[in-house]
């Protein structure tokens, strides 16, 4: 008879919305941040500008919310374009 070792990993909750957050940084040009939001999310210019201003003035902005897998994809895209992006569970 052999013993069975069961390893339980805490599953990442997939059933709550996840936020993609962009934090302010001292270097990225405002025009570039708007360009990135349009390119990654396909946002129209006024919405992209509003989010950029929120990052600039408040230090952070929730730029997208939805399922975790897609949030990971967007966070990776934003980081690859050198924005300080992270993810958090929506309240």
């Amino acid at each position: 008879m052999s013993d069975t070792l069961t390893v339980t990993r805490e599953a990442v909750s997939l059933d709550v919305p996840w936020n993609v957050v962009v934090h302010d940084d001292p270097v990225n040009l405002m025009e570039y941040v708007v360009y990135v939001f349009k390119k990654v999310f396909g946002y129209p210019e006024p919405h992209a500008e509003r989010l950029m201003m929120e990052v600039h003035q408040s230090g952070r902005s929730i730029v997208w919310s939805g399922e975790r897998e897609k949030a990971e994809f967007y966070a990776q895209q934003l980081q690859s374009l050198q924005l300080r992006a992270a993810m958090e569970k929506a309240e």
Binding site: H23, Q82, A85, A86, M87
Partner: peptide, 15 residues
């Protein structure tokens, strides 16, 4: 390294 700076932003994430 820039990539490591970005990685720090994900430190609290379950993934």
């Amino acid at each position: 390294e820039l990539a490591d700076q970005f990685n720090e932003l994900m430190a609290e994430d379950p993934g």
